[in-house]
Design a protein around this nucleic acid. Structure first.
Lengths: 111, 111
DNA sequence: AGATCATATTGACACTTTTCGATTTGGCGC
DNA sequence: GCGCCAAATCGAAAAGTGTCAATATGATCT
């Protein structure tokens, strides 16, 4: 159950087009906040807020260097997320849907 | 840009732990709504709302049979989503972050 | 030390989302 | 046709989200 919460946080972060674009931008390497800001019509505080969400879910890491902050993707978080997505979308043994659930006549027990 | 919107809708749908669990449940095969409902502490109207969101983003398909509605994952939507996720998280040519952007002194131009 | 620049934080607002109970719709069996 | 069942829709309340301007923080430069 906590596993779901952990990853739904990541999906929630990606569930905003601007944040998804930011991830896309970062996919080729580190960028400082000011560079990301240039590419969006968005106030500086709004960008900072989006970056915080991306960092808090683990997908992005921030590295401070002097007055600048450089952001980059966290490869480990990304591969774990990919795996989680594959997990919840592919067939497996002992899945809930294979249990015999009583009281639901729509599930094939008495037809 | 529309591509982002299309898929962020999917991520938004997965950005709720209960919906992620529902997807997980459906990963092994079709289930009727009543069976899903049994597994959650959630009102019937709330479940119906979640199923609508999952269907609207394309991840899930509903099939009506008599008074029951059976839900299942859409394999095509899933593989496309996986691909989109891989796309925005992996390195590529001509990425924005490789452009030479003026005015941002934090991006390595004058150090 | 004071000015300036890059970010982060705060507070406020509009908008969206989650949730429920109540109602509606449509199928099935008597 | 009538009542029952499964699911969808409606309306409302509470919580969460995206956004901005204003302010705070903290580093660098003169």
């Amino acid at each position: 159950m906590e596993k779901y919460l952990e990853y739904t946080k990541v999906f929630k972060a990606l569930g905003d087009p601007k944040r998804a674009m930011i991830v896309d931008m970062l996919s080729c390497g580190e960028l400082c906040a000011c560079m990301i800001l240039e590419k969006f019509e968005m106030s500086q505080s709004t960008l900072s807020h989006h970056m915080k969400i991306l960092c808090e879910c683990g997908l992005v890491k921030g590295r401070e260097e002097g007055k600048w902050t450089y952001y980059s993707l966290d490869a480990d978080a990304i591969s774990k997320t990919k795996q989680f997505f594959c997990n919840i979308t592919s067939d497996k043994e002992n899945c809930i849907c294979k249990e015999n659930i009583n009281g639901c006549r729509g599930c094939g027990e008495n037809e």
